[in-house]
């Protein structure tokens, strides 16, 4: 069996994963508490979404490790650069299994890994990123940017990405992590994650849409954290009338 066969097999399996996550057990779980979701799904006999998410995460992790193995430029950064992708899938599996705290930790780990790795790649002046800047400046603004200027901008972006990763890590370990600073940081990371994913389309046109889609997690993971933390913050500010019914919940 060739690598092409394996990849095609995995592609079909991933499509199946997407369908299974969207099945009533997976989709429905998004609108109810974890305990309710587990109960309802089990009752329906459809609780397969977490298996699908686990498989997707395992495959994405495997491809990240393969990238580490075959990448010839800064190979140590290849696996963490993919962190948001596989951590998002693993976080979904954990959440569907009612492990919200683990899910949150995985999301933070994924965002930190991706931003830190991309930041370090920028600081090392990855040629591909230099060309993204030159190409985007020309295509969007009509500006001819010199290589020197693009490299200068890339250094600034690298510092920014590493700082964002470090701040998120620090905030996660801080008791008052759901304050306005955390929300602002996650807002920035969300914007930047989606923006850099979309840059693949700006760079090479709509034919590069799959390249952008596979990087959606770079923005979606901080967005999920932002919504989660903001939701918790809002609920904490409201008076509680009822006791919590799920001890595993992160609130």
């Amino acid at each position: 069996m060739s690598a092409a066969h394996l990849e095609r097999g995995a592609a079909f399996a991933l499509f199946a994963c997407a369908l299974m996550v969207l099945m009533p057990a997976g989709l429905g779980a998004a609108n109810m508490s974890t305990a309710q979701a587990n109960h309802t799904a089990a009752a329906r006999g459809f609780n397969v979404a977490w298996v699908a998410a686990l498989f997707a995460g395992a495959w994405l992790l495997l491809t990240a490790l393969a990238a580490w193995r075959v990448e010839t430029w800064a190979p140590a950064l290849a696996a963490p650069a993919h962190g948001a992708r596989y951590c998002a899938a693993f976080a979904l599996a954990a959440w569907l299994l009612g492990r919200a705290r683990i899910a949150q930790g995985l999301l933070v780990a994924g965002a930190v890994a991706t931003f830190a790795a991309h930041g370090l790649e920028a600081l090392l002046l990855r040629a591909e990123f230099v060309d993204y800047l030159i190409g985007a400046a020309w295509r969007v603004l009509g500006w001819r940017v010199s290589q020197g200027l693009a490299e200068g901008a890339l250094l600034a972006i690298g510092v920014m990405d590493v700082a964002a990763a470090a701040l998120l890590l620090a905030l996660f370990g801080w008791r008052k992590r759901r304050g306005p600073a955390a929300i602002a940081l996650l807002g920035w990371m969300t914007f930047w994650g989606f923006f850099t994913a979309a840059a693949r389309i700006v760079d090479m046109g709509w034919g590069n849409l799959p390249e952008a889609m596979i990087r959606v997690a770079n923005g979606a993971v901080p967005l999920t954290l932002l919504l989660h933390w903001r939701g918790i913050r809002q609920s904490e500010s409201e008076p509680r009338n009822e006791p919590r019914n799920d001890p595993r919940n992160d609130r």
Partner: peptide, 26 residues
Amino acid sequence: MKRHANILVAVLVLAGAAAVGVLTGP
């Protein structure tokens, strides 16, 4: 018991989908 059956169903679906991909490959 039911949980195990669910996992089995999921694994079978994934394996089936992967097999379709492999068998229709170049």
